[in-house]
């Protein structure tokens, strides 16, 4: 710990203001969260209740599960636009492999629940692998590669359900997606565990360190003899698998599997990661930031329902908040660079 103190003294030597500036990325989202919470608590008596906290947690769970993987991707200074589509296709796949009621007009392939789940996870992992290969072997920028994957996954979804809606998923998925234990919804527990797992991997494993280093300076990572392509490929697969899990639980949570069910989750997940303060330039941030970002988004979405506001205006307000967060993100990067000089 002695070097920890040395680090602190090193920073103190530069004064408190530069330290604050270098921490801007973490402080700003937290202040935003406190401000929003205080505002809605003041504006609506029904907002600051234990019940409503439960609502908020449940509402952000699917986004949270998807955002775990996306955090890895953004930390590497890449992007994954296929998360929502992959979530959708995985949710549809797990329903496709489950026996549906007779009135559901889908030519599906009923399999035992465990097999259905495993096949669905394999499917999203495979789509992630295609993203990974396109990015690392062929060299397509992730923005374009995952844009293509967004269409591909949507196409598979469309072919599987053909405009119909499926309702049944394996019982394990039903429980995790819509059941609860001791009053706590399983989906919140799964989201919390995945966020915790993501945090542990990023903070305490060698792979997590590599993710930060590749995001911090890719050239330097390569000159340090790291297998940069392997790491980039791995985060794309992780992102796809997290999306797939979010998709399966989401389908159970909503009670149906259909086309375009997850469209809003792309923007929400990116917003959660970036609003939380993880740098779009890579190397800075983490799951802690993503959790703060999720709460900012959750409080905002939920709070706007509690105050009497034009529901069409809500969309605009969300957009403005996202813009503000992006501005802070870019400025925080610049302030930090200045503090480092």
């Amino acid at each position: 710990m002695s070097s920890e103190t040395a680090l602190a003294t090193g920073r103190r030597a530069r004064g408190f203001a530069p330290f604050l500036r270098s921490q801007m990325r973490n402080i700003a989202p937290f202040l935003t969260l406190i401000f929003l919470t205080a505002f809605f608590a003041f504006a609506s008596p029904s907002f600051a209740t234990l019940d409503n906290l439960g609502n908020i947690l449940t509402q952000v769970s699917v986004t949270g599960i998807i955002a775990v993987g996306l955090t890895f991707v953004i930390l590497c200074a890449e992007i994954d636009l296929s998360i929502a589509s992959i979530a959708n296709v995985t949710g549809i796949a797990v329903a496709y492999f489950t026996l549906q009621e007779s009135y559901v007009n889908i030519a599906n392939v009923p399999l035992p629940g465990v097999v259905a789940i495993i096949l669905s996870i394999l499917l999203c992992a495979l789509l992630g692998l295609v993203n990974a290969l396109g990015l690392t072997v062929i060299g397509i920028p992730s923005f374009i590669m995952t844009l293509a994957m967004m269409q591909i996954a949507a196409g598979i979804s469309a072919l599987l359900v053909r405009g119909q809606i499926a309702y049944k998923v394996p019982s394990l998925i039903t429980t995790l997606g819509s059941g609860s234990i001791g009053g706590i919804p399983w989906i919140v527990i799964v989201a919390a565990l995945m966020l915790l797992g993501g945090h542990l991997v990023l903070t305490y494993t060698r792979f997590g360190r590599y993710v930060y280093m590749v995001g911090g300076n890719r050239e330097a990572a390569e000159y340090s003899g790291l297998n940069v392509k392997l790491i980039l490929g791995a985060v794309m697969v992780i992102s796809a698998v997290c999306s797939g899990i979010g998709g399966m639980l989401g389908v159970a949570h909503f009670g149906s599997a259909q086309q375009n069910e997850f469209d809003t989750y792309l923007l929400d997940s990116i917003a959660a990661v970036v609003v939380g303060g993880t740098s779009l330039f890579g190397g800075r941030g983490g799951i802690g930031n993503t959790i703060v970002g999720l709460f900012v988004l959750g409080v905002l979405n939920n709070g706007l329902d509690h105050v009497n506001i034009d529901s069409f205006l809500k969309i605009l307000i969300r957009g403005l908040i996202l813009l503000a967060a992006l501005v802070i993100n870019v400025y925080a990067q610049r302030l930090r660079e200045k503090a480092a000089e």
């Binding site: 280093m213 300076n217 330097a220 800075r284 480092a340």
Partner: peptide, 11 residues
Amino acid sequence: RDMLFHQEPVY
């Protein structure tokens, strides 16, 4: 610049 991570600690 190509070799080092300027925003990371020395260790």
